[in-house]
Computed example of a mutant assay.
Amino acid sequence: MSVIDWDDAFANMAYVENSHELPAFWAKRAAAYRAALASARLEQDIAYGNAERQKLDIIWPDGPVQGLAVFVHGGYWMRLDKSHWNDLAEGARARGWAVCIPSYTLTPDARIHQITAEIGAAITTAAGRAGGPICLAGHSAGGHLVSRMLCDDSPLPDAVRARVVHTLSISGLHDLRPLMHTKMNDTLHLDPPEATLESAVLHRPFGSSPLTCWVGGGERPEFLRQSQLMTMIWAGLDVPTHCRIDGMHNHFSVLDGLKDPDAAITAAFLGNPAIEGTST
């Protein structure tokens, strides 16, 4: 028996007041944002594959496109979709970036390694529609997925990988082995080979594209450990890394700054991480 209660270690919603109301709140907020956008600024349900959930949205800036910013949602690979998160595009969009938000097939209908491949296909599709540099961001399970794009077995084609100038993992999961000890694994179906394959901390990077791990100071200790672990290991592999502990934000409020073009987390998303209060 494990000496750590891993179910509790990953129980984000149990430690945030009224968290059961959040999914409906996110969906309503994102729908209001979509309704307020000019129709020319929002492309919805662009297919990047044949499966039902293999679709992405692109939110376009008002002027010339500075580059492509991709945000991958979380939900432990088990829940939610792109429609909950469109409003988080506004910070990057207001700074001139085209913002891609993909959905992906959820477990147990797909294994996690298959979801990783889907995100590679989504980014590749979006990269064919928006030129310039590419910045990646993902939250929680999405942090895992964007970090996997930087690994030595990245599903991204060489031409797309070469355009990735920065990756922001927000409260990301980089060591998946503890998840095998949780009740969630009844849905995730992680086994030792896949947990090893899908743990970015156990990979070498494909190059030296910078990585920032951003985590709220009020999150579960396991999420702070995961962020610190990833930055420490990859710093030793010649990747420019930062670990930013953001005040006392919880696992969900840590995202709110992405709606603000002047927020530090938006700057980090677009490749300019503030280094104050970080470790390397």
Rank of each mutant, 00 (worst) to 15 (best):
E21L: 15
G216V: 01
V65R: 05
L156T: 07
V65H: 09
A14L: 11
H242S: 15
G172T: 01
A51W: 10
S154A: 05
H73N: 03
E21R: 12
Q226T: 01
L136H: 01
G172C: 07
M184A: 08
R177G: 03
G277Q: 04
T182N: 01
N250R: 00
C100Y: 06
I134D: 11
W60R: 14
Q114C: 02
A35T: 15
I59T: 12
D260P: 07
E219Q: 05
P221M: 05
P23V: 00
I265W: 10
A31K: 10
C213V: 03
R163V: 08
E222M: 14
D260R: 04
Q228D: 14
G143E: 06
M232P: 02
E52I: 11
T125F: 00
D87R: 04
H189N: 12
I233M: 04
F10V: 11
K28I: 14
I275S: 09
M149K: 00
A14F: 09
R220K: 14
E198H: 06
P273F: 03
Y76F: 10
I112H: 00
E21Q: 13
A30N: 05
S199V: 03
G143D: 07
A11S: 07
F223T: 00
C213R: 15
Y15P: 05
D153I: 12
A126Y: 10
R53V: 03
G49E: 05
E43A: 09
A24Y: 06
G271M: 07
R161Q: 13
A126W: 12
V164Y: 01
W234L: 04
L68N: 09
V146E: 04
L211Q: 07
G143Y: 03
V254K: 05
I46M: 05
A117N: 07
A14D: 08
S169K: 03
T107D: 00
F25D: 10
E118H: 01
S83R: 13
L176C: 05
M1L: 15
G216P: 11
M232C: 08
S199F: 09
D256L: 12
E194A: 09
A121T: 06
